[in-house]
């Protein structure tokens, strides 16, 4: 086995190994680690990270970045809460998702057609949409229990337990992962996304409409983020323009990077992102359950992210 093969293997299995390591570590060190409530907590807490992470994986694999997803979450959550007492829950959700997709397509046009830096465009949107969400709810948090039946209905989206045990978040998580994985691995669009991320000039010369591809990718990212926002708001039963989805974009980026999707574009590692998200969650969990202050968890996460980027660098050479 030569050096390159060795690197490939390190690259391929590093994230999974790390996750297993955490698992073993926890099963030895952490009391009550195997409680079902632990698993349930993980599922509810990881939901926004997975949903945004799936979108982010696609975006990053085109060589872009979308730091507006946290604000899109806030916008979608607040918009749903704002509209649902008037027009009912489902129409409110549909409208929120639609608005989010429009925002995503706008980003896609700016990045794909007008060739603006994805970082700058989404930075602008991050600020604008966060502001917009706060304006929408007049700077006050919208509590669902004050909205009557419809509020309770939405709250169920975040608190319902399937058969009284498994949190409802498992459904959006499952659907989202499956959808993204199938898209990346099996569809024409998936191939085109990765081709565009790998070499945009070659792709356009091979007849791929790169602007349209970008639009789809950012649109999907925004759609997933909007779902994440609605589910997250439902979980806490309050839509807060200022805090909903804050820093969610960074968690999503971290999950994608740890999962092995290269920041400069290329192969989208959908399942890698899932592992990445689990690792991030596992760090939090480990620290919380062993009475280590959260500040240390942050430092651990930072170290893991840097190592992940380092491992990637080796491979891309």
């Amino acid at each position: 086995m030569n050096k390159q093969d060795y690197r490939q293997i390190v690259k391929k299995y590093s994230a999974v190994t790390l996750l297993l390591l955490f698992f073993v570590l926890n099963s030895i060190l952490t009391p009550n680690f195997f409680r079902i409530s632990n698993l349930n907590n993980t599922i509810t807490q990881i939901c926004p990270m997975i949903l945004c992470g799936m979108g982010m994986t696609l975006v990053i694999s085109t060589g872009g970045i979308d730091i507006s997803v946290g604000s899109i979450m806030a916008l979608a959550g607040v918009l749903t809460a704002k509209l649902m007492s008037g027009i009912g829950l489902l129409p409110a959700v549909v409208i929120s998702l639609f608005v989010a997709v429009l925002v995503g397509c706008f980003t896609g046009i700016m990045v794909g057609k007008l060739k603006l830096q994805a970082m700058v465009v989404t930075l602008g949107l991050m600020l604008a949409l966060r502001g917009g969400a706060q304006v929408l709810c007049d700077g006050r948090d919208i509590y669902f229990n004050k909205l009557g039946d419809v509020g309770e209905e939405l709250a169920l989206w975040g608190t319902y337990k399937i058969m009284g045990v498994i949190p409802v978040q498992i459904i959006p998580i499952g659907i989202c992962i499956l959808f993204t994985w199938i898209m990346v691995e099996k569809t024409v669009l998936g191939r085109q996304i990765q081709a565009v991320g790998d070499s945009i000039r070659s792709s356009s010369l091979a007849g791929i409409n790169t602007a349209k591809t970008m639009m789809t990718v950012y649109g999907l990212s925004a759609l997933f983020a909007a779902f994440a926002g609605i589910f997250q708001a439902a979980k806490v039963s309050v839509a807060a323009g200022s805090s909903l989805g804050q820093l969610a974009e960074l968690d999503a980026i971290a999950a994608a990077v740890i999962g092995g999707t290269p920041m400069i574009g290329g192969k989208a590692h959908v399942l890698g992102t899932v592992v990445g998200a689990l690792i991030m969650q596992m760090i939090t969990l480990t620290c919380v359950m062993n009475d280590i202050p959260d500040q240390y968890a942050q430092v651990f996460k930072a170290i893991i992210i840097v190592i992940a980027v380092f491992v990637q660098r080796e491979q891309l050479k």
Partner: peptide
């Protein structure tokens, strides 16, 4: 640059 998609 304008032909192959290198990592695919």
């Amino acid at each position: 640059v304008e032909g192959i998609v290198p990592h695919l």
